[in-house]
């Protein structure tokens, strides 16, 4: 599980003693990169991009039984400008691929992609002329979630994996200016 914020609480002479966690929690000191990554990782807003049956499981992940809101990702945005992560849920037909790419390009940096399910990740059973054999031919994918469809738990595991990756990002700039491929994290 991710570290809780209370563990990086720091104190100066004015703050109460360490034992009084509730009052001391108002001061957080840390590396700016670290804090930014924490903020990014714990509020990954997904883009509503359900393409097929996987979208049903994605909706189920938002509902109360699995509750993606526990990880700060409950705000599914219909506009790419406000989204951080694109969950490609379902098979991508060759006709849909340019649309997918355009929506990805419209998302604001930093942005991530989760490829959910067998069809989005590799084409699955649809090895034919109509389906893109893996969405990574169109956009760079950060986390692949196998399954047909992945259960909500499996998608949550993929999201946690992505959070781990986001927390390990090391950028010296606030905004990525280089193309993503050169800034890729070695994982």
């Amino acid at each position: 599980m991710p570290k809780r914020i209370q563990e990086i609480v720091a104190h100066d002479s004015m703050t109460p003693k360490i034992g009084d966690v509730e009052k001391a929690g108002s001061v957080i000191v840390g590396n700016l990169n670290y804090l930014l990554n924490q903020a990014r990782a714990n509020a990954l807003w997904p883009l509503t991009f359900g393409l097929a049956c996987c979208a049903i499981e994605m909706m189920s992940t938002v509902a109360s039984r699995f509750d993606i809101a526990r990880f700060g990702s409950e705000a599914f945005r219909a506009t790419p400008r406000q989204a951080d992560v694109m969950i490609v849920a379902g098979r991508v037909s060759k006709k849909m691929a340019p649309v997918l790419r355009q929506i990805y390009d419209q998302m604001a940096e930093p942005k991530w992609v989760i490829s959910m399910g067998a069809c989005a990740s590799s084409g699955g059973v649809y090895n034919n002329y109509a389906i893109v054999q893996g969405v990574d031919q169109v956009v760079p994918v950060d986390v692949y979630v196998p399954g047909c469809p992945p259960s909500p738990d499996a998608l949550l595991y993929g999201l946690l994996k992505l959070q781990d990756k986001v927390k390990r990002l090391r950028h010296n700039k606030l905004i990525e200016l280089k193309p993503r491929e050169q800034e890729r994290v070695n994982v």
Partner: peptide, 12 residues
């Protein structure tokens, strides 16, 4: 065991 998600294609 459903926890199969990973970062790169060859790992699968």
């Amino acid at each position: 065991d459903f926890e199969l998600a990973d970062y790169s294609r060859p790992d699968f």
